[in-house]
């Protein structure tokens, strides 16, 4: 049974050795094994090709494969580290690791910066923050006058853009989140601390013993 299971795993595109992934992330080997169960479920939800498409990612997040969401798109793009248009298992584990309670704070700060630096210019620009605010308002069906949006943007950039050049660089972002730590709450998933309890089924598929021998 172990051999059969191993063969199945190696046939999954992007499958990486759990021992190697554990050494590169905040997860233990058994936690990587548990994440593989979650990964298999998500990656086979629309097309069973062993890769997570954007549609499958949206389905897992919203239980609705057609729901378009700017922020989910940004998260997907960052998880798709190899820029292949899909998330493979290695990408999935390494990206989720950033959200582990024990992951280094610097990794969380960098990830959040990239999330908001939508065009990858190296700066979070006012038009990007405005676009995200408008997307949030649409998502939550909140209405806010244009003037109110501009007031929020003025306040945000007055607080974060210390050199007042109209854009937030990485150093400014680091200072800003140090003063506003609640902004990084979204970068930690408490679930990840005890994932083997969340996915007990991994126990029946674990390769940990055979790797150890």
């Amino acid at each position: 049974m172990g051999c059969f299971e191993s063969k199945v795993r190696r046939e999954v595109p992007g499958y990486e050795d759990p021992v190697v992934l554990a050494s590169e992330t905040a997860f233990s080997v058994s936690e990587v094994e548990a994440l593989f169960e979650l990964y298999k479920s998500i990656s086979s939800s629309v097309v069973d090709d062993g890769l997570i498409s954007k549609e499958e990612f949206q389905l897992a997040l919203f239980k609705n494969r057609k729901k378009e969401n700017l922020f989910a798109n940004r998260i997907f793009d960052l998880f798709d580290a190899k820029r292949k248009g899909v998330i493979d298992f290695g990408d999935f584990v390494k990206s989720l690791s950033v959200f582990h309670p024990n992951a280094p704070l610097d990794e969380k700060i960098d990830f959040a910066f990239k999330l908001y630096d939508m065009d990858g210019s190296g700066f979070i620009e006012r038009h990007e923050v405005k676009q995200m605010l408008i997307a949030l308002l649409c998502e939550s069906e909140m209405k806010l006058a244009d003037e109110a949006i501009e007031v929020i943007l003025d306040k945000t950039f007055s607080d974060a853009d210390v050199n007042q050049d109209g854009k937030i660089d990485l150093d400014e972002w680091k200072n800003f989140v140090a003063k506003n730590p609640s902004l990084l709450k979204i970068m930690t998933l408490p679930y990840l601390r005890d994932i083997t309890t969340t996915f007990p089924s991994f126990v029946f598929h674990s390769e940990v013993d055979e790797i150890a021998t």
Binding site: F62, R74, L136, I152, D159, A160, N180, I186, L189
Partner: peptide, 26 residues
């Protein structure tokens, strides 16, 4: 608290699209 007293990132971080916890719900 009115939204205009908050900074944009506080508001943005409330987006459902940023809540990866949903990935773990069956």
């Amino acid at each position: 608290i009115t939204p205009v007293t908050m900074n944009a990132f506080e508001l943005i971080s409330t987006s459902q699209g940023l809540n990866l916890g949903n990935l773990f719900e069956k």
